[in-house]
Design a protein around this nucleic acid. Structure first.
Lengths: 254, 254
DNA sequence: TAAATAATGTTCGTTTGTGATCGTTATCCT
DNA sequence: AGGATAACGATCACAAACGAACATTATTTA
């Protein structure tokens, strides 16, 4: 057993991207392929990764493939956004993390925070955060939606109602030009509304693609949002709306 | 103790960056590599960091390793027991799966059942069952216990109270010779009691090692158990008690 | 202030992770 | 299918990192 200093970062990349390549890690760490191969072999021996030709992947049992692919969408933007979001969250506070791939990225970025109480209705986030002993995780109950690991239904909502949060990190399916948050799923809408009501600061994490999408159900207007963290410049209409409602806009950069 | 000033800062850096290097700390503190090595060695001895060549990393995996080892204990017996248990559970019914490595094994064996509604307070079980589209999974809320993926606290109990189960599959920390189920954790005891109260059939899964153990908290007597699934023959006292209370004994065989 | 103790720096022999080479094996492409 | 190409694991040499022992400096205590 050798335990290299690169191990945690390799695991983090694998968690984030679902896989790692030898070449990618060579570029990332500036070492030879041989060294990376040794690292991956070790990680495979301890069962933390599964070795494949050219790299390694997450152990197959834990991953939902369709979901994992969606997770890869705009991966780079999501990580940037998540990182910017995590930087604005202090230690020792109570936060809620909602369903969504971007909020999952935020969870990963929060792993080095201390003294957090995190409530979530996303079982993937619970899995991610369970590796930190500095973070108390509370899971809302609810029916498990296999497509994305979300917990939905009355149970979730009732649980959320019992808490007050310093920060809520939420995503949305789509953002209208006027800054309205929209979603596909009615059940999620009522959960999101509850979260917003119970939180001092509401941070919306949304990459640029949300502006091109449509979704039927109204969640909230920009007025409810304290901060929006995104990757590229937001449409003018939305920016105006943010000014009116006093919403901070944070642009993530890599 | 040598480290008075640098220790908290080293830990802080490690938490923030996921790792520390000897060189980096040398620059940071303006001391010699040897001093840093001494610091890191001490931090490693107290388990606060894990030493690697060139620096140190966070010991993030320790909890999971401990649990994984426990899961492997008596693995063969557990699979046998789980298989026998799963065979006695029909399709299209509502069941509860409690915290425990053996109940996790049962979850794996249930993957080919159809039309099940499974409620669980074990996040690992939720992960396992999420790969079947024939099983509806409901997760109780609660605080996530990192050591075993259990969800505990009032939230869990309140959720369970809202359901009635055809079958409950429960484990226990120890079984007394007279057939009393015992547990280590008071919080789990009250959850288990609730489960038993809400279920038509209660199946206890317990490998033989439970008879050799002691645990302080009383969960239930054999009278509450409909079926006990185990691997080897149970002690005479316990068997008598089963006869009295009408508890079926099922011996798993591979 | 002097003695005692702890912390840090220095030196040196030892360990070990890394890179290079090479023969083998898996994957890709026609 | 079968050759081309890339990835792989084993082995070895080397340099960096390591720990032990001792010297030196800071800090505490009497």
């Amino acid at each position: 057993m050798v335990l290299t200093i690169r191990k945690p970062e390799i695991i983090a990349i694998a968690r984030r991207e679902g896989k790692v390549t030898v070449d990618g890690l060579v570029d990332h760490f500036g070492v030879t392929p041989q060294t990376i191969r040794r690292d991956l072999t070790e990680l495979a021996e301890t069962g933390e990764l599964e070795r494949v030709h050219g790299g390694a992947i997450l152990p197959s049992t834990t991953v939902n493939i369709a979901y994992n692919e969606r997770r890869m969408l705009n991966q780079a933007s999501k990580v940037d956004i998540a990182s910017a979001c995590a930087k604005r969250i202090p230690n020792d506070c109570a936060i809620f993390l909602n369903i969504g791939t971007t909020t999952e990225a935020v969870a990963s970025e929060l792993l080095n925070h201390e003294g957090l109480l995190v409530v979530t209705n996303n079982i993937n986030i619970a899995n991610i955060l369970s590796s930190s002993d500095q973070i108390d995780v509370i899971v809302t109950g609810g029916q498990l939606r296999r497509s994305d690991g979300g917990l939905i239904g009355d149970l979730a909502q009732n649980t959320i109602n019992q808490f007050r949060f310093d920060y809520a990190i939420i995503g949305c399916s789509a953002l209208r030009q006027n800054g309205d948050l929209m979603d596909f799923d009615m059940q999620e809408v009522s959960v999101s509304k509850t979260i917003i009501r119970q939180s001092d600061h509401v941070m919306l994490v949304a990459d640029n693609s949300k502006f091109d999408r449509k979704a039927p159900a109204f969640v909230a207007s920009m007025q409810s949002i304290s901060t929006i963290v995104t990757d590229k410049s937001v449409p003018a209409d939305c920016k105006t709306q943010c000014d009116v409602s006093g919403t901070d806009i944070v642009y993530a950069s890599s």
